[in-house]
Design a protein around this nucleic acid. Structure first.
Length: 238
DNA sequence: AAAACGTCCAACCGCGCAACC
DNA sequence: CGGTTGCGCGGTTGGACGTTT
């Protein structure tokens, strides 16, 4: 079983990229733009697999990358986002301009994990380590007849925390919709009070978001991220 | 001085998903 | 509608570099 390899391994370079390879890749993408990674290596005259080119470009060569140390502010943002999103590095990276998923993942594993542990916080659950393992409850808003797709959507909609591995569930309402012209009258999905927890304040009865003007378009000011979340793609795409 | 150990991070690997045929 | 292809993601690895013994 399995699939065919993504490229002809026998004739591709592996390991660290040389300056010349970098230059070729940059020149090619400048001239032709990103896309069709599979055919790019050949077209650019690189003996690399397309995936390798993509990775190199996204994680290292892209001109909009912010290299250098993470600020304290970025640290805290990453921690917040991780507590909500779990190991969704690409989503987290989407909220940190100039940072890549790989960079954040590495930084998390090398610095932030340790930082949280030193604060007595479990980096996986974001709960105090001394706290006894709690029975976590997954609140499901998925109707019995929901499709798999809908179920997936709900996974990022509600819940408290997850599961066997104590990975925090995604309790986000991510919507793809044009700006709503009318006040929302319908209860949020499936009648559950999904909209009752404020992610910005972590309070149930917070009024800053849910009841405020920001909810008029049917979305949350998730961690004060309103601007970015109005378009789901902008949250997901780097 | 050098061996052992620890840290960091670029790159690779395998898988899931969606688009395409 | 099922198989194939390509992309993107998260997890893992390996080697360079720094620190300690």
């Amino acid at each position: 079983m399995g699939r065919s390899p993504c490229c002809e391994k026998a004739h591709t370079n592996k390991g660290a990229w040389t300056k010349e390879e970098d230059d070729r890749l940059i020149a090619y993408i400048r001239a032709h733009g990103e896309g069709c990674w599979r055919s790019l290596p050949k077209a650019a005259g690189l003996l690399r697999c397309g995936k390798s080119c993509r990775l190199r470009w996204i994680n290292y060569l892209r001109p909009d990358l912010k290299r250098g140390n993470f600020s304290e502010e970025e640290d805290e943002l990453i921690i917040k986002f991780h507590s909500l999103l779990g190991n969704k590095w690409s989503l987290i990276a989407g909220r940190l301009p100039g940072r890549t998923d790989n960079e954040i993942k590495n930084y998390w594993n090398t610095h932030i994990r340790r930082k949280l542990l030193s604060r007595g916080i479990d980096p996986t659950t974001h709960r105090p380590i001394s706290e006894p393992a709690q029975e976590t409850t997954t609140i499901s808003f998925v109707a019995a007849n929901t499709t798999k797709e809908e179920e997936e959507e709900h996974k990022i909609t509600a819940g408290i925390s997850n599961t066997e591995e104590n990975i925090p569930d995604l309790n986000l309402e991510l919507r793809i919709s044009p700006p709503c012209q009318q006040p929302q009258t319908e209860p949020l999905k499936t009648g559950g009070r999904i909209g009752s927890v404020c992610f910005a304040c972590s309070e149930n009865q917070c009024s800053c978001v849910i009841n405020g003007s920001s909810s008029s378009n049917g979305g949350y000011d998730f961690l004060r991220l309103k601007a970015g979340v109005s378009d789901y793609r902008s949250l997901e795409m780097k």
